[in-house]
Amino acid sequence: MKKNQNKYCFVIDSESININEPMKKKKLFRIVVVVSAITLILFGTLVVHIAMVTNPKDKPHYGVQLSRIDFKTPLDSLQANEVSAFVKSIKGVGNTMYNYQYHNLVFSHQVEIISGQEVYEKLVAEKHVDATRFFMTPEEIAKTAKCPVMTEKSVLMSLAHQVQLYFL
């Protein structure tokens, strides 16, 4: 009886192994497919989310650049107003602010319409002011500190740049 029982058990085990092996493979394959699909969907969602959130075109000041012109001699209020009015009249220029303490003019402009250099050249050509355009070389920018709220080197920002590069 004991012998039969053992035999019986052996047969069942053997059959179960033989029957379940392809099923296990099939199940494993299904799991891999489902997990891959979910991962793909989640990654796609993340990419779409990043694309939507970090799209620079959605920023309120997209394309608005600040530039500065430094005057070698201080301007009085009349001259400052005249210079500001002229710069503001140039197509693509937004706001202007003359800084009396440091005698410079800060102005905003749409980079797609006009560059800071072009504004400077127009001002010098028209008003004959003794001034230089302030600009920094890429090396100077890399050397100096930046505002801490611009987290441009974070992993998320790197991913965002990639997303913008390939999807926008």
């Binding site: 650049q65 530039s67 600009f135 930046k146 505002c147």
Partner: peptide, 11 residues
């Protein structure tokens, strides 16, 4: 502290 402010970027 704010060098990027005046660093002109491309379109």
């Amino acid at each position: 502290y704010f060098t990027k402010l005046l660093a002109e970027v491309g379109a």
